[in-house]
């Protein structure tokens, strides 16, 4: 009696668990189909194209070739076929990386106090501030970028004001510089930094800050030892959210950097457009994706280690 009593529920449980797993699979089926069709599919096409030969007028010829991948970092001299580093590409990679890092740092510097300010407002007013922060999202990226152009071009607002005030004699060239790109990207991606940090500060238990003060921590030490570690997940999430799109940014560098200061996204676009080198474009895209994946893996590892010990 005791034996069957012990056995039966066990069997039922296993049965229920199986049904549960089955149901979960059925429920997620639409999502799985969508992911396969619209994410994995195009990705496979990209991988395939990166190993083909460029067609004469764009598109590809169905001949296997490693040129696409090779051309990402080296180039063949048109006269004697010798290989050399593709300096132009490498400087674009470097610019993309360094501008993305700078953008991330700048959005953090401006975003953290903003998020803190909003999260410490009375509840009724927070929604308003959050709305204001996200307002730029409601308008088109291109329009916003052109608005920045109005600010910083030689005849733009900033230069006019500085000239009027006599601070400068001649307009400062800001358009078509790395400064313009960094400025524009910081503006565009700031909300992506503010929102996750806001969420983290909102969750922060301010009694812990009081406890830190009670235990003789100054404001700065309380920030460093208690607040910062507790909102770190928000900061990392915000940094990832800013860094990744910065790396592939395309509209902002195109408008504010002119044709001169290309970034990764522009380089890719070029291959599918005027460059007529789809395999190279595909290879570059996959490279960018790999860089993003590495950043994400780093994020996951840092946050899961945090959960384990920090």
């Amino acid at each position: 009696m005791a034996e069957t009593g012990g056995y039966l529920p066990g069997a039922l449980e296993a049965e229920a668990e199986k049904a549960d797993t089955r149901n979960r699979w059925l429920l997620s089926l639409p999502a799985v189909i969508i992911i396969i069709c619209f994410a994995a599919g195009p990705l496979l096409v990209m991988v395939l194209y990166s190993f083909l030969t460029p067609g004469d007028y764009g598109n590809v010829k169905w001949e296997f070739s490693l040129e696409g991948w090779m051309n990402t970092i080296v180039q063949r001299d048109i006269f004697d076929d010798t290989l050399m580093w593709a300096d132009a590409h490498i400087s674009i990679f470097w610019r993309s990386f360094s501008l993305s890092v700078i953008t991330t740092v700048l959005t953090l510097i401006f975003g953290l106090p903003t998020a803190w300010f909003i999260a410490t407002q009375p509840p009724g007013r927070r929604e308003l501030w959050l709305f204001l922060v996200t307002v730029p999202f409601w308008s088109n990226l291109l329009v916003r970028t052109i608005a920045i152009q109005e600010l910083i071009r030689n005849e733009g607002v900033i230069n006019l004001v500085l000239l009027k005030l006599g601070v400068i004699d001649a307009p400062i060239q800001m358009m078509f510089t790395d400064f313009a790109i960094g400025f524009g990207m910081t503006y565009v991606y700031l909300p992506l930094m503010v929102l996750p940090i806001y969420a983290a500060v909102d969750k922060l238990d301010f009694r812990l800050v009081e406890a830190a003060h009670d235990l003789y921590a100054s404001r700065w030490t309380a920030f460093r030892r208690v607040i910062l570690p507790l909102i770190k997940p928000g900061i990392i999430a915000g940094s990832i959210l800013v860094f990744i799109p910065s790396l592939g940014a395309y509209v902002t560098p195109r408008v504010l950097g002119g044709g001169k200061n290309l970034m990764f996204g522009n380089l890719i676009e070029l291959q599918f457009g005027a460059g007529r080198n789809w395999p190279l474009g595909a290879a570059l895209s996959l490279m960018l994706m790999t860089a993003v994946m590495i950043a994400l893996i780093y994020y996951v590892r840092v946050t899961s280690r945090d959960r384990a010990d920090g």
């Binding site: 238990d205 009694r207 812990l208 009081e210 406890a211 830190a212 003060h213 009670d214 235990l215 003789y216 921590a217 100054s218 030892r225 208690v226 570690p229 507790l230 920090g310």
Partner: peptide, 30 residues
Amino acid sequence: LPPNQRPVNTVFQSYALFPHMSVAQNIAFG
């Protein structure tokens, strides 16, 4: 006087232990 300058410590009703620190680190904080 701000709390960090008062020779006064509190055992909070809600404990308010630092969740990112171990038991020993919490005690060592002050």
